[in-house]
Design a protein around this nucleic acid. Structure first.
Lengths: 203, 203
DNA sequence: TCATGGTTTAACCAAATGGTTAACAAAGGT
DNA sequence: ACCTTTGTTAACCATTTGGTTAAACCATGA
């Protein structure tokens, strides 16, 4: 028998994404998700059994997106330093498109670190890691960098935290008659690339 | 009649701090707080009327602590660049002592930005701002810096995000046979100071 | 010692919430 | 037309949870 090719599942996932992103696993309400999806609450359970399973799916999708932007690192045709610059750009692109994603990950990870580690491990196995690529570049004597892990942390911090703490920065900016918004995106990006150039020395 | 100088209020606030920090306003349970404080749940309401008021007190305390470390900036006896370095150190000291504080602020701010702005405004009025101090230094031609607001965002990102995303970084580090923990604190601090020195030019 | 009033508790309540059930609608195969 | 499977809903249930109440507790001043 042919199944009714219902879009319901997708509609639910979309709604759940929005609600979970904003309120987290505990804060989100099943009724709220059902309302946003325009369906009866029981349908949520019909499709996803329970809240946690629904959340898992949303979280899994978010994680996929989060790791998707790492693929640039594999492009062997580019010098490593270019790949790092692209990586940073993709990272910022990604966060510009899904600004809540970072904070969503942070929030849930801080609540349930074990679950996160389990979920991330499979992704991390399939995906290239910036650090591995850098280490490879060092071994091939293509680049020089003091501490790859520290570089990674610094870089990701520079890229991510402005999105995570945007509301805080907005208040601070307003207080100081400074600007902080889309207008600053270009100089923000430049500052990240400048940081990369300061840290990675081509040989 | 003399009031029993009860420490109950303080005991409750301590317990509430821990629970709210971990689970946030919505995730925290009054019973959980009462249990941790070793008292009856009704006492919470006796002292703080309701959950939101209790949360407000905890949040207010956290905010005070958060702004406390800004006082270095006012020490006119120091050159501005030294004050910035001290500011960064205090910032990291603070987050080392209260690692959950940053993520706690972020989480609650993202849920209720209006409330945060209201609460922060009073603090921000009484406290010096790094940006204001830097602007002052530029005007006095003591230092040169391209974009104070951008510098502020970059600096705070470098200092804060490693604490916010510590669980994520730990997983990444483990995957790459790298280290990320207390042992790296010194080189982490150095990287922040290095960033400051790269950006601020004394005249 | 005992009345007073702040402090603390057990028991309770109403609302919210995740989840279930049973009935119904729709759609396809025969 | 009729049956079977899938999709959808309203009504319901059990539990959780923030909050209330009334009574007990206990230090103190008279």
């Amino acid at each position: 028998m042919k199944l009714k090719d219902s879009k319901t599942e997708e509609v639910i996932l979309d709604a759940a994404k929005v609600v979970f992103m904003e309120y987290g696993l505990y804060g989100a309400r099943m009724q709220q998700i059902a309302d946003r999806a325009g369906i009866n609450k029981a349908l949520l359970h019909y499709y996803f059994r329970n809240k946690e399973r629904l959340f898992d799916r949303v979280f899994e999708n978010a994680l996929s997106r989060y790791f998707q932007n790492m693929e640039v690192l594999l492009d062997e045709s580019l010098p490593i330093i270019d790949r790092v610059h692209s990586y940073a750009d993709r990272f910022i692109d990604f966060l510009t498109e899904y600004p809540q994603m970072a904070i969503f990950l942070i929030k849930e990870v801080s609540l349930n670190q074990a679950l996160f580690e389990e979920k991330v491990k499979s992704h991390i196995k399939e995906n290239p890691s910036l650090i591995a690529v850098i280490n490879h570049g060092i071994q091939r004597e293509e680049i020089q960098i003091i501490d790859p892990m520290l570089f990674f942390v610094n870089l990701v911090s520079l890229c991510t935290y402005p999105f995570v703490a945007r509301p805080i920065f907005k208040v601070v900016a307003a207080k100081n008659d400074a600007l902080w918004g889309v207008e600053q995106e270009i100089s923000f990006r430049s500052s990240v690339h400048e940081f990369i150039n300061n840290k990675i020395k081509p040989l």
